[in-house]
Each structure stands twice: as structure tokens, then as C-alpha cells.
């Protein structure tokens, strides 16, 4: 077993509440994590949209009308920016967080990154078609 340890007196430094503003990487990290607020908001927005569409032509028109208010447009634009940050960072981190093997070989990170953007394009095109064209 390990030998007994002698504790020496020491000075404990404190970390300020704004530890993340002084360094770019920490700041980006906290912004990335804050995207969670907007993910939750857009889930709520999506549900409000569904409820409005199901409520008939008039409720749907009202919903669209309210969605063009400056406040909502700004909130949604900021939210979209955070969402893009989430998408970009999430895709970038996936190859670092998991190792994929195909036929015994490790799939290179760039291939995993590219595959995710392809998935994004395919899903986006499908949903666009579903909502606008189908």
C-alpha cells in the first residue's frame, strides 16, 4: 500500500466566477455549452409551431405574424448562431471522442467529419422537401 503522506500547509488559490472570459478557448467552451439554452428554446418553438398549424389556418397565420416581430427574429437569429456553433463544434469533437473501425482499420478523423456534414446536408434536404415540396 502507499506510504503515509504528510500534509504540508499550503495556500489555496480561488477561481473567480468569470474564469472563462480571460482565455479564448475557455470562452468558446462556455459559449458552446450555453447553446443548450437555445436547443431547449427551439424545441419549445417547434412545439408551438406544430400546435399553431394544427389549430387551423387562422392560428397558423397569427403564429407567422408573431414570428416576424423584431424581438422573436432577434432571439431566433441569436439562437441560430448558437445552434451553428453547436453543430460545428459537435461535428469537430466527434472524431476525437470516438474511434471507428472499418475492416480493422481506424477511420480517419477527416472522413468522420466529412460524413457528418454529408448527413447534415441529406437530412436538411429531406426536411426541406418534406415541408416545402412534398
Amino acid at each position: 500500500m502507499s506510504a503515509p503522506v504528510t500534509r504540508v500547509p499550503s495556500y489555496q488559490r480561488r477561481i473567480g466566477v468569470f474564469w472563462w472570459v480571460h482565455k479564448r478557448s475557455y470562452f468558446l467552451f462556455v459559449m458552446r455549452e450555453l447553446s443548450s439554452i437555445f436547443v431547449a428554446w427551439f424545441v419549445v418553438y417547434l412545439l408551438m409551431f406544430v400546435a399553431a398549424v394544427a389549430g387551423g389556418q387562422q392560428r397558423y397565420d397569427e403564429f407567422l405574424d408573431r414570428a416576424t416581430s423584431p424581438l422573436l427574429l432577434v432571439v431566433n437569429a441569436v439562437g441560430l448562431a448558437f445552434l451553428v456553433l453547436h453543430t460545428v463544434t459537435w461535428f469537430a469533437l466527434t472524431p476525437k471522442a470516438m474511434v471507428l473501425r472499418l475492416g480493422g482499420r481506424r477511420v480517419p478523423g477527416t472522413a468522420m467529419l466529412a460524413a457528418q456534414y454529408v448527413a447534415l446536408a441529406v437530412v436538411s434536404a429531406f426536411i426541406y422537401w418534406l415541408v416545402v415540396k412534398a
Binding site: 436547443v39 427551439f42 441560430l80 451553428v84 453543430t87 457528418q116 447534415l120 426536411i127
Partner: peptide, 10 residues
């Protein structure tokens, strides 16, 4: 959220 949400929001 990364794959489905951006297009829905747009």
C-alpha cells in the same frame, strides 16, 4: 440537435 435542428429553425 446538430443534424436536424438547423434546417428546422431556418
Amino acid at each position: 440537435a446538430a443534424v436536424f435542428l438547423p434546417v428546422l429553425v431556418v
